[in-house]
Design a protein around this nucleic acid. Sequence first.
DNA 1: CTGTTAGCGCTTTCAA
DNA 2: TTGAAAGCGCTAACAG
Lengths: 336, 336
Amino acid sequence: MGVSIDDVAARAGVSTATVSRALRGLPRVSPATRERVLAVAQDLGYVPSPSATRLATGRTKTVGVLVPFIDRWYFAHALEGIDQELREHGYNLMLFSLGGYQHGQRRRFSEPMVRKHVDALVVLCLGLSGVELEELKHAHIPLIAVGGPVVGCHGVHIDDTAAATEATQHLIDLGHRAIGQLRGGSKDEKNFIVPVLRSRAFEATMHRAGLQVRPEWNVAGNFTVLEGVAAAGRLFDQPGERPTAVFCGSDEMALGLMFEARRRGIRIPADLSVVGIDDYDFSGPAGLSTIAQKPIDHGRVAAQMLLAELNGNTGASQERIMPINLVQRETTAPPR
Amino acid sequence: MGVSIDDVAARAGVSTATVSRALRGLPRVSPATRERVLAVAQDLGYVPSPSATRLATGRTKTVGVLVPFIDRWYFAHALEGIDQELREHGYNLMLFSLGGYQHGQRRRFSEPMVRKHVDALVVLCLGLSGVELEELKHAHIPLIAVGGPVVGCHGVHIDDTAAATEATQHLIDLGHRAIGQLRGGSKDEKNFIVPVLRSRAFEATMHRAGLQVRPEWNVAGNFTVLEGVAAAGRLFDQPGERPTAVFCGSDEMALGLMFEARRRGIRIPADLSVVGIDDYDFSGPAGLSTIAQKPIDHGRVAAQMLLAELNGNTGASQERIMPINLVQRETTAPPR
DNA sequence: CTGTTAGCGCTTTCAA
DNA sequence: TTGAAAGCGCTAACAG
């Protein structure tokens, strides 16, 4: 079955070392020899055994991606970017999912999971604990966080504080004073700092503008559409005055709120303005005003840094703040 | 840095062979010895080198997943299921994306891409060409298709014909006669058979009911929300009579159509009934009637079959039709 | 420019 | 029950 380097060497009448050099494009091989080797290899359908190469070189030519779970908009797009960059450079992508949160807590990550399986690791939207990070550093493999800041590790992500501030300020600039918030849930906030950053920035911006943050208008939606619907329900059920606008920590929750608003006959933006963060695939069609980011670019950039690092360019991976921009569509307008 | 099996052997005062046996739980090791080896290994923080194991055994303990691109609802959920199953059994998941369609055609898959990298492969929502399949069979690794039938290869998927038939029949049963279709685009249909199956089943069901399939009510939406919006626009722009209901090949397109309908003041379901297929995350909150499927289960089942096959259970991977069910929500009602 | 020769770190007969 | 030794298929000095 498997045709090995020896077969090629024998057939080409050279040593295995020469075959190895010729096939990898190394110098010190005569053009004639190289050509012959290449022809024979092609002819025999020879493909080097990655297992053998790994063992001999100590490099796996694969990069790991660690995610808390898979089915979220940001992950899929970031993955797409990482994958593209990796594949263009002959690297493989190994996916490590922690399988979501159980008992409100994600599964612990242990370094042996990835040990010797990958040359580098990107940590996607995951807050690593001190010990986890320590293990990883000890393993000495290049590491980069994507999707949010991780202490003790460089990352590629947007400035979430700036994003939430800009979104909130957009509402204030339109003249809104009674503003509610759809924030992440306790699971999100316990496991990752991004929801917290966005939430805090909303509150800081409100205070800075001399506006009150009313606790009863502050509901948790777990960053999903479904929970967003439920959270919106709770918000709308509050007795008394209703906010004229809502800042949502993510577009997914914003969309959920919009569905619930429609069900209740609350008109957007006439009765209620809504702004989100992300620019989810649906946001355009839904007319949702938002702070846009491009996760696919985050993935590409992170992968580039890792690859540079693996090519000996020490210090290639750095903190990198990616661009955001306010996209005003139809869900935000001055209050009436 | 790396502590190897020799270190453990030396420290435990046994041979490497014994360490190997002890650690893998093989018989023919005295309890006392095993215990000592385990303790030493634990103590030294020893983890076997996967590269060495691969080379020695010829098995990689990893399964590959081939996808046309990543950011689609079905893929993320199926991946989640595959990943869960794999990880529970100590297997790793290597992701191979073809990076979408360029020039309307996906990148060609070549067997060397995965050769010796994985023990088995799942092909996700991809129609493999004859040559591609031939290469794969020649590589003798277990193979299974997920998300749609692939000729010459077993698969785990729903009966797409039944799904589209049921959806269409649902509209007919409600009393609709003027029914339009939002189908996949040429890219989808050229690269995968599922869009074609759904489309054909719609037409067959219409004919069977003695209803006319009007070409001008038959628009292409590429299976995405964004394209669904555009396609709906084209449908609504048709002069003359409008259909009273639309069958959509996927929920994503259905949602797109709903956004566009709302924008134009077309009321759903009062003016127009809409049904989709999939039960996308948003479908519940949006109130979309649909034929539900559970891709995460498809992933689990496929992974189970592959693992069984790898455990010597030849013939474990078979054709498996997964359940679907009509979920009637608020977008379908009798015509007025 | 090319060949020889050690490994890389495990697994797996085959003996003991 | 345990050990010795021969690979697995490639890379990387080191000679020539």
